[in-house]
């Protein structure tokens, strides 16, 4: 009794391999997260601090004089490092956009006000 079966090829071709899947592209979620975290964080820091320099609050602030620019400089440095690293580039991009929004949309008033306070505190 032969095992040959004409309908079935002796050496069937290998099953088609799964098509090479491209690595999933990162979405815009981290970018949006960076914007939503960055700009409000800067606003909270600077508006919170300017409230603290009211005379009846006893000038409770550490961001007087040139130190007012310190958070922006640190924030910018962190955002640049994150933006340059491939794995965190979208978060870094979002943080950079957040800094731009904060600076353009009126955050400069708070920073400038704090920076002028050196001689008064």
């Amino acid at each position: 009794m032969s095992e040959d079966t004409p309908d079935v090829p002796r050496n069937p071709p290998p099953p088609p391999q799964e098509e090479e899947k491209e690595p999933p592209k990162p979405g815009l979620g981290l970018l949006v997260l960076g914007i939503l975290l960055g700009a409000p964080a800067l606003y909270a820091l600077y508006f919170g601090t300017t409230q603290g320099i009211a005379p009846d609050q006893g000038y409770k602030t550490f961001l007087a004089g040139p130190a007012a620019f310190l958070p922006i400089a640190v924030y910018l440095a962190v955002a640049v490092v994150l933006a340059v690293r491939p794995r965190t580039s979208r978060l870094g991009a979002g943080l950079l956009i957040g800094l731009g929004i904060f600076t353009l949309l009126g955050g400069g008033v708070c920073v400038g006000f704090l920076a002028q306070m050196r001689g008064e505190i």
């Binding site: 580039s89 979208r90 991009a93 950079l96 956009i97 904060f102």
Partner: peptide
């Protein structure tokens, strides 16, 4: 264009544009 570096470049443009404007 799907290069992931294009979003950081947009971020650099906005951040430094804002700083530059002041």
């Amino acid at each position: 264009l799907s290069d992931p570096r294009l979003w950081p470049i947009a971020g650099f443009a906005i951040a430094f544009g804002a700083i530059g404007s002041r």
